[in-house]
Design a protein around this nucleic acid. Structure first.
Lengths: 229, 229, 229, 229
DNA sequence: TATGAATGAGAATTCATTCAT
DNA sequence: AATGAATGAATTCTCATTCAT
């Protein structure tokens, strides 16, 4: 039933492949208009939350009437779907690229942290929506957003594997729980979106280096003193 | 608009002191009933989000009709107000107590981390609501939830002060940004609420020790290698 | 999910048992109000069709706002459900009663024809809705109106059985198709609702006698001449 | 409002004479395309009802976009107008032809019954629409479908006249009401469209003979026993 | 305290139709 | 002939809230 309008392959594959949908050279306007609308909506979703953002507001932001939005999207959900799946596609792709290159666990992990912080600016809105509306979207009937969980699982596997490798080769302390550590790292990065504003004292690269430093070497000075189980 | 029903001193003072409002020693059913309702509501808010939770659902959970809820609360906002202010009152109190005791920065900071993780279970619902609905509640007109920001500021001052003291006495590396570091610690703790479930492999105390270890000594083994600005 | 509001057992049993739902003595007002609203809606559905009747119109007819209708009914569908199931319950009950009494096929069939015409006045609206909106309602997703088909099947079995018995004992001509004959009788009766208006030259009883005469003895005079297969 | 696009003479004369409107011998693609679209629409109208069928669905069925339909038709109403008037034109023509040939009332009436059943297959969609959406279409403002009533009246006059003639010459029992009898015959035939499916056990010719038999000689065997007023 | 009927202001969505290209 | 973006009015439904009983 969801034909052309809902291009979101998101429902069937964990991560959408966008762009390929449109006919050939994609003269632009058609797809561009849609992308523009998605971007506007993402900003609103991030600022006010998915539920608190009305379709009318999105339309107004775009200078059209609310009904007209339905020429481009099946539903409000389709829009947020596009916001999130675009983001997930991008980040999963980046993680995969780093892993394919190979290298020491510590190097790879540093790189993954940098990637995480690196998405903060281009995908600020999407990340915010994910943080705030994840629970609600997951609870929606129809399993439309199940792919969120799938993508998250894949990402978790990537991180956990590197942490375990690091422990195996003696680069990381053996007494920490890999999964738990991953979660804390992930959260610390994503949650930054709540207060990070571009143009401030620190950019995301600085944030990343700051975090990498504390993450690997800790806040304390001198000898490491905490006991290792 | 704020009649007797809305006991929330929250509007006037950063952190509400509950109970004192009620008519003296009337520990009676009235107040208890109210607290019970708040607890039920908090669970629903946490599970479904503040907006997605309807007044009817709260009432149903309590076995009454939605109209009857208005004998206890002025509005839906009053309920969430009570959920959040109760939590804030508790945690700010605990932080104050630790600070009043005094001690080394590193000890105090460890203790504050433990307090943070320690609120995860008793205040799981409130923390979840804060994480997910903070943005929305803040945006509500009337400034009703301004006290959230005030309380957060006070807490930030407490943490940052200890980090700075630690740097001053050489316990903490001098190259990290105190405010930034505070935020990352805070977020890492709170955000745990998203996936932490009591009864799992680790309890909140173990979580705290795990985090304290990584926070102070880092994930890496051997000599500390990151450069200090 | 459909709790108190949607009392329609229709979904689970072919024919609803109304009235029993309400608590004991059913002081009236609650159930009466609901019934009144159903009646108003039925009239509108009959006059304008289910789809063309707006919820607002129903509410206006009742002197309330459209939103208030949802205090009584889950949805527009629930209302029409109640209209139809009430009717089906009544007529199936009547048919069963006649069959339980027993008698000659011809006598029973005459009685069933009379019952059919007898429902024309009290259930005019419901029958009209069934005629006009049957197709649409059946096509609705969720199978909510599957009971319509079930009830129709039961009624068909009753009629066909009597026609077959009549043929077996030689009261009815053997060359007619029982099922086909039933359908034509049924349609002839129901479709009357399109033009029958109470208070006209003939009442439904007269209509019934008229039809019984033609049905059994035919329009022609003299010897029966059509060939019998 | 009625521009060139709306060829429906239906509005002015009881029964439209199609084809004549078109520019002479232009049997060409223009008119054919239009007829094709009408046929597609008729099927949808029949299956889902006029209101429930969206313009978009009709267009999709034809492989074009909804806006493109408006190159062929003024409005959705124009389409259904064409569906119905084509049908009415055909059947009224056939009735007239039989009457012009003359003959005994019983013979003519049999023939008219056969004509009725004979339209069931070629005009299945149109008849279905008439059955189901008659009420709604009649209620539309502007009197666009008044010709439906006019055509029906003409048909009624034809039938009633034959029944009366039959009674006058003693072929039909004198105690039945001609108008009432006509209506029942008419309804019985048309309503068949609800369940008749081509390719089943009986074709429409068999249906007609079956009905003629029961109509004239009745369902009962032996002597005619119903009393004649 | 509780009920339950009603309010009223929106919410998302639908859809026939228009029109520049 | 056809496209596709947009309109605008209407539709069903939601829900916090009120209030007489």
């Amino acid at each position: 039933m969801n034909t052309r309008k809902d291009s979101g392959g998101a429902t069937t594959t964990p991560v959408r492949r966008r762009g390929a949908t449109k006919r050939a050279a994609s003269s632009g306007s058609a797809s561009e208009r849609r992308d523009h609308l998605v971007k506007l909506a993402a900003e609103l979703f991030a600022r006010k939350g998915f539920q608190a953002t009305t379709v009318r507001e999105i339309a107004e932001e775009a200078g059209i009437l609310s009904g007209s939005l339905y020429h481009h999207f099946d539903s409000k959900e389709t829009i947020v779907d596009e916001v999130l799946s675009t983001f997930l596609h991008d980040i999963v792709g980046r993680y995969r690229a780093v892993l394919e290159q190979g290298g020491e666990p510590r190097t790879i992990l540093s790189e993954m942290v940098r990637i995480g912080f690196g998405t903060l600016e281009p995908h600020r809105a999407a990340i915010t929506v994910m943080q705030n509306d994840w629970n609600y979207l997951r609870s929606l009937p129809g399993g439309r957003f199940d792919y969120l969980v799938k993508a998250e699982d894949e990402v978790e596997r990537m991180w956990v594997e590197q942490i375990k490798r690091g422990q195996a080769v003696g680069q990381f302390r053996p007494d920490v729980d890999p999964k738990l550590t991953y979660r804390m790292i992930r959260d610390t990065i994503w949650v930054t979106v709540r207060w990070f504003r571009p143009g401030g004292r620190l950019d995301t690269a600085a944030l990343a280096e700051h975090y990498v430093a504390v993450l690997f070497d800790g806040l304390a000075t001198g000898e490491r003193t905490t006991q290792r189980a």
